[in-house]
């Protein structure tokens, strides 16, 4: 990041406790977007625990995975500043995650012992 961008980011941080929501509305709370994200993370966790405690169904695993994916994306985007930082960092994160998912799926697909 070069100097200009850094001071720019800083001035962005300074005054705003306002979070603009997609629908054109906005919320003001101390800590701005960071606090907002934290609230969503907490809610998602509660949601996950409820889903897990309910009897297992077809949707249990997909819902869990979806919620945890969403949480991870939120943290990475807002707390680790991937939304504003150098674009190449996204690549640096996404490539190994892709490789990981590929291998994990493969390991799941292979029977535990040879055929």
């Amino acid at each position: 990041m070069d100097e200009n961008k850094q001071t720019h980011a800083q001035s962005e941080h300074a005054p705003n406790d306002t979070v603009h929501l997609p629908g054109g509305r906005s919320i003001t709370l101390p800590g701005g977007i960071y606090t907002f994200v934290f609230v969503i993370l907490a809610l998602l966790t509660v949601f996950e625990i409820i889903v897990a405690e309910l009897p297992d169904g077809f949707f249990t695993l997909p819902l869990l995975l979806l919620a945890s994916l969403l949480k991870a994306v939120l943290v990475v985007t807002f707390y680790m500043h991937l939304n504003t930082d150098n674009r190449i960092f996204r690549l640096v994160l996404l490539i190994p995650v892709g490789v990981m998912l590929l291998s994990a799926m493969w390991l799941l697909a292979v029977p535990p012992v040879a055929w």
């Binding site: 291998s103 493969w106 390991l107 292979v110 535990p112 012992v113 040879a114």
Partner: peptide, 17 residues
């Protein structure tokens, strides 16, 4: 060690990966 719930192919997969 499959005898105790492990997976002998796990090493081969991870190693060749």
């Amino acid at each position: 060690n499959p005898a105790e719930g492990g997976d002998v192919l796990l090493w081969q997969n991870v190693f060749w990966f």
